[in-house]
């Protein structure tokens, strides 16, 4: 297969040249290497997929970027600062599970980040409330704003979780297989929703990093796919996807990139 024809490019990333820069990052749990050494960078305006088999350590990479777990060696920076300290850049992490608080309605769940940001008072102001209502509308849950999580379907719960993540006005959105637990139909619909929010410019979002183990999903969504090896996750290949949205899986270019990605991801 001619890789050049689809613009496959595996140049080493330039350090200090991106919003998120990983330079020889290693993540270790005790004696077990979870990921790395791995280097990559994410530019402003990019939708990146971290594609790899289950358990390869891609979620650990995402959590390191979110500042939830430390890295063992290498350098990881967000807008030039270490993760978790990058005050100028807000990072929002969306988990595989919706993690809604069952005693709060959809709207109350969505305003949670704003409540926490106010400190001890916990009282949100009018503009935050109207922002939450706007997000509820954006994810299509207006009719369910006052419903409790157990009254929502799995897809609706994930949409509420997406709205809550966006409520903190993140610059960088980290998605850990966000719709992985949902059925194919719901998943596609939510991916489209996510893309339309990303493309709409209604948010502060500058970059999206999505962890997935679905090759078609990675091709359908991202500008670049970082193909990772099995544990410990190393970078096997970078697949750029220069296709306009909406992307049609029946399109020949789509199929070709799918093939390239699949070949890159195949265990050697």
């Amino acid at each position: 297969m001619n890789l050049r024809a689809v613009g496959l490019d595996s140049r080493a990333p330039q350090p200090d040249a991106g919003l998120v820069v990983a330079d020889n990052v290693v993540i270790r749990f005790g004696d077990v290497d979870a990921a790395g050494p791995i280097s990559f960078s994410v530019m402003s305006g990019e939708f990146i997929s971290l594609l790899g088999p289950s358990g390869c350590g891609k979620s650990s990479l995402l959590r390191a970027i979110a500042g939830l777990i430390p890295i063992a060696s290498g350098r990881l920076s967000i807008a030039g600062q270490p993760p978790g300290e990058a005050a100028a850049m807000r990072v929002g992490l969306m988990f595989q599970k919706p993690l809604l608080l069952p005693w709060r309605t959809t709207l109350q769940n969505i305003v949670l980040p704003a409540e926490i940001a106010t400190g001890s008072s916990g009282a949100i102001d009018r503009s935050e409330r109207s922002q939450a209502l706007e997000l509820v509308r954006m994810v299509g849950l207006s009719e369910f704003a006052d419903a409790y999580p157990h009254q929502l379907s799995g897809g609706m719960q994930q949409r509420a979780a997406l709205a809550r993540t966006l409520m903190s006005d993140p610059d960088i959105l980290l998605l850990d297989e966000p719709f992985g637990a949902l059925d194919e139909f719901t998943r596609e619909a939510l991916n489209e929703k996510l893309l339309s929010i990303w493309k709409s410019g209604a948010t502060r979002l500058k970059a999206v990093i999505m962890v997935t183990h679905s090759i078609p999903e990675a091709v359908a969504m991202s500008d670049r796919i970082l193909v990772l090896s099995s544990r410990p996750a190393r970078l096997l290949e970078v697949v750029p996807v220069r296709l306009s949205h909406p992307r049609d899986p029946a399109n020949a270019d789509f199929a070709r990139i799918l093939g390239v990605t699949r070949a890159a991801a195949r265990p050697s």
Partner: peptide, 24 residues
């Protein structure tokens, strides 16, 4: 643990974790 990570990404302090997560 995911719930606690969620609160960490929102930069909640211990008091908020108790008030808004653990106690309810």
């Amino acid at each position: 643990a995911d719930f606690q990570d969620l609160f960490r990404t929102m930069r909640a302090d211990q008091f908020q974790v108790f008030r808004k997560l653990r106690i309810p």
